[in-house]
Amino acid sequence: MRRKQPVVFLGSEGEAAVVAPDLAAFLGLLADGIGPCEAASPYGPVTDADSRPHEDLKAVALRYAPDRRASAPAVIAAAAREFPDFGTTVMELCR
């Protein structure tokens, strides 16, 4: 079975986070109006109140991942659960 790959954010200031467990979930994140930088922000979790649905991206998400609809906070939480040590691992490789 082919394993799905996570979508990650590597920022210019040392940010390193998994923002979605796979591409289908990432499409849903974008459809909610949340980009990778917001999803990886160290300044607090993304909430449902942060959602700014984008109709064109929602259409893309529904076309390519119709069975994978989840809120942005749920996508980010799933990524964090599945890859809890990603940021630490990246930082250890950079030394």
Rank of each mutant, 00 (worst) to 15 (best):
T89Q: 12
C94K: 10
A77G: 08
D22E: 14
H54G: 09
R81F: 04
A72K: 06
A78L: 10
D67G: 09
A49C: 08
R69F: 02
I34R: 06
P42V: 13
D32R: 09
G35C: 06
C37L: 13
V75C: 04
G14T: 02
A49F: 08
Y64M: 03
V90Q: 01
A40K: 01
L57N: 03
S12C: 05
S41V: 07
A16M: 03
R52H: 13
F26R: 04
I76N: 04
A59T: 09
L93S: 15
F26Q: 07
D22T: 09
F9M: 01
L23D: 12
E38N: 14
F86K: 00
R81M: 10
V46W: 05
R95L: 06
L62S: 11
S71Y: 15
L57K: 01
I76Q: 00
I34Q: 10
G33N: 11
V46E: 08
A78H: 09
E15A: 13
P21M: 09
L57Q: 02
A16N: 05
K58H: 02
R63F: 02
D22N: 15
E55L: 04
A17Y: 05
K58N: 01
V60M: 03
P84S: 05
G87I: 06
V18F: 03
A80V: 04
H54K: 05
K58R: 06
L57T: 00
A61F: 02
R81L: 12
A59C: 04
C94E: 13
P42E: 14
D85I: 01
L93P: 05
G14S: 03
A80C: 05
T47V: 08
